[in-house]
Design a protein around this nucleic acid. Sequence first.
DNA 1: TTCGTAATTCGATGTTCGTCGAACATCGAA
DNA 2: TTCGATGTTCGACGAACATCGAATTACGAA
Lengths: 131, 131
Amino acid sequence: MAPREQEHPALNDVELVTVLSALAEPTRLRIVRMLAAMEGERAWKDIDLPIAQSTLSHHLKILRNAGLVQNRTEGTRCFISLRDAELEGRFPGLLESVLECRDTALARESEEPASPEKHGATEGSSVPAAT
Amino acid sequence: MAPREQEHPALNDVELVTVLSALAEPTRLRIVRMLAAMEGERAWKDIDLPIAQSTLSHHLKILRNAGLVQNRTEGTRCFISLRDAELEGRFPGLLESVLECRDTALARESEEPASPEKHGATEGSSVPAAT
DNA sequence: TTCGTAATTCGATGTTCGTCGAACATCGAA
DNA sequence: TTCGATGTTCGACGAACATCGAATTACGAA
């Protein structure tokens, strides 16, 4: 990365409101979903969203401070990953329930209509479909 | 209540971010916990928190719009209750995981210091549980 | 060393949010 | 009808937030 090594809080020092606040923002929720959709890490550069780099950095910092993600530095670039296992220990079921929910509007808005493939993914509950 | 009957959204129209935003505020989370701690409804007047009435009304409106609570009007007063069953249908496990988590700071701040228990760590989960 | 790339920090801007007191609307009771 | 109690709405205020572009830091490569 660029400046200095990042700090990651111990999960026990993280409050529930902090986590909820971090997740309560469309862009950040999108990032979390993106990370959850894949195993392991994701390169910073590969997170492409229609926002400025500085904004993305800002959101990642908030997610980091909330204990939701962690980043590993390798040379000049860094890789982000979800702290899902630890999270499960501190807030049992929380992340899972957030991810499991197929948010209608958000899903519609965050997925590109460009990819012809259908990411079935969320199985189970089919959202009542737009009427 | 005072002016006119309240509106309650259908849970399917509620987005996840809306719910998370509603919960991501200490006072509101406290209200939700308070409602969850008891079965059934709670009189508006009995929700006493160190905030102005107008502020409480504002928070309840946000919780209402997020589909988290509902209120029943009876004469001039109203009773608030959690829409837990419906919530469970729309966001499975979410409310439960939020309630189950013993938030250190918040718990300390919202619970009476009356219980001399020592509950050292957070993961112990000595939550009364109401599953 | 110098250059370029990668990510963070800084400063500024406009918006949203929590909070309050005052004014208002609605109902039951006198 | 008048009065009092109960919530809600309205303006206003300061704090916090999302966003951006520019400056900065850190590293690898030439």
